[in-house]
Amino acid sequence: MKLFTLAIKNLSRNKLRSLLTILGVAAGMFLYAAVQTMQHSLSVATKGNADDTTLVVYRENRFCPSTSRLPEHYLSTIKRIPGVSEVIPIQIAVNNCGASLDVITFRGVPPETLKDYNPEINVIEGSYEDFMKRTDAALVGQHLATRRGLSPGDKFEAVGVNVTVAGIISSDTPQDENVAYVHLPFLQQASRIGLGIVTQFNVKVTDSEQLQAVADKIDETFRADQQPTSTRPEKAFFAETAKQMIELISFTRWLGLGAVMAVLGLVANAVLLIVRGRVKETAIFQTLGFSRLSIGIMVVYEGLLLGLIGGLAGVIGAVAFFHFKAFTLGNEGLTLALKPSATVTITGLTVAMALGLLASLYPAWKATSRPLVQSLNA
Rank of each mutant, 00 (worst) to 15 (best):
S151F: 13
S151G: 07
S151T: 13
P152Y: 05
P152W: 06
G153C: 09
D154R: 08
D154E: 10
D154K: 04
D154M: 12
K155S: 15
K155M: 14
K155Y: 15
K155L: 12
F156W: 12
F156Q: 00
F156A: 10
E157A: 10
E157M: 10
E157C: 05
E157K: 08
A158S: 14
A158C: 06
V159Q: 13
V159N: 13
V159E: 13
G160I: 10
G160F: 10
G160A: 07
V161H: 01
V161P: 08
N162G: 14
N162M: 14
N162A: 15
V163W: 04
V163E: 06
V163S: 05
V163Q: 05
T164F: 05
T164M: 11
T164N: 10
T164E: 14
V165N: 04
V165I: 12
A166P: 07
A166D: 00
A166Y: 01
G167Q: 04
G167L: 06
G167Y: 04
G167I: 01
G167F: 00
G167D: 10
G167H: 02
I168W: 01
I168P: 07
I168C: 05
I168H: 01
I169G: 08
I169L: 10
I169C: 09
I169S: 04
I169N: 02
S170M: 11
S170W: 03
S171A: 06
S171M: 07
S171I: 02
S171L: 03
D172H: 12
D172E: 14
T173F: 12
T173Y: 12
P174E: 06
Q175K: 09
Q175M: 13
Q175L: 13
D176C: 06
D176Y: 11
E177K: 11
E177N: 14
E177D: 11
N178G: 15
N178C: 14
N178D: 14
A180Y: 06
A180G: 09
A180T: 03
A180W: 02
A180D: 09
A180Q: 06
Y181H: 12
Y181A: 11
Y181P: 07
Y181Q: 08
V182K: 00
V182A: 02
H183W: 11
H183N: 14
H183M: 03
L184T: 02
L184V: 02
L184Q: 10
L184R: 09
F186C: 00
F186N: 00
F186D: 00
L187R: 00
L187W: 00
L187M: 04
Q188D: 07
Q188M: 08
Q188P: 08
Q189M: 13
Q189Y: 07
Q189S: 15
A190Y: 03
A190G: 08
S191F: 02
S191I: 00
S191G: 09
R192Y: 14
R192I: 08
I193Q: 11
I193C: 08
G194E: 06
G194A: 02
G194I: 00
G194S: 02
L195P: 05
L195I: 11
L195M: 12
G196D: 05
I197G: 02
V198Y: 01
V198G: 03
V198F: 04
T199S: 12
T199H: 03
Q200L: 15
Q200F: 03
Q200M: 14
Q200I: 06
F201P: 02
F201K: 00
N202C: 08
N202M: 15
N202T: 12
N202V: 13
N202S: 13
V203G: 07
V203R: 00
V203F: 05
V203M: 06
K204M: 15
K204E: 15
K204Q: 15
K204Y: 10
K204G: 12
